[in-house]
Simulated assay, not measured.
Amino acid sequence: MPDDKGNVVVSESWRHRLIRLDGASGKVAPVITHIPGYPARLSPRADGGALMSVFAPRNRLIELVLLEKHYRADMMEQVPRRFWIAPALATGASFMEPLQIGGMKIMGVHKPWSPSRSYGMVVRLNADLHPVDSFHSRANGKRHGTCAAIEHDHRIIVASKGGNAILKLNVT
């Protein structure tokens, strides 16, 4: 997302942060670090802020898999893709899915109080790119894998790839 000074702010999903690339020098500066999920697209807001989409929650198991190159390579070679230990855009399709972060399924139902592998969130950032509010899908919800959001006509339009839906949030 470009700013009026020739800089660009981008999200780094696997590093769970936003960074600013200086248009003149090429230097990189962190804007937001330690985001509790994996950020997707940023889109500008009319007031100079931004909308940040977060497609999945972070957890220690996924972070470990991201660090362990050999384990990740073995998993990708030997385990069917749908059962990889990885961020998910949606969950609940199979009882064989790996449960993570204390996830709990009883009789095939993922309990809403139990952390999820997938998630959906949109964060409204002000002009200084500080979070001012957020909109979440439930842990057992169907609107996960939030990959993009834009402002349009005083609404936020959200793409939920995991939920295979376009959502309209009426917010002011």
Rank of each mutant, 00 (worst) to 15 (best):
I35P: 07
L51P: 12
G23E: 02
A29D: 11
V65C: 09
D47P: 01
N7I: 13
L61F: 03
V10H: 07
P57E: 10
R15P: 03
A29Q: 14
A56Y: 01
D22C: 06
E63P: 05
A50N: 08
P57D: 10
I32D: 00
S25N: 10
I19D: 02
G26A: 08
K69G: 01
P80K: 02
M75D: 09
P30C: 12
N59K: 05
M52Q: 05
H34S: 15
T33N: 12
V10I: 14
R17M: 11
K27C: 02
P44E: 13
H16M: 06
H16K: 08
A24G: 12
E77T: 06
V79R: 06
G37T: 11
A46K: 15
L42K: 01
N7M: 07
L67Q: 14
A46M: 09
A29H: 13
A29L: 12
R17K: 13
A24M: 11
K69A: 06
P30H: 09
V9P: 05
G48T: 05
S53C: 02
M52P: 00
R15T: 13
E68A: 14
G6M: 09
H16I: 00
R20P: 06
T33A: 12
V54A: 02
H70C: 04
P39G: 10
R17I: 05
R15H: 14
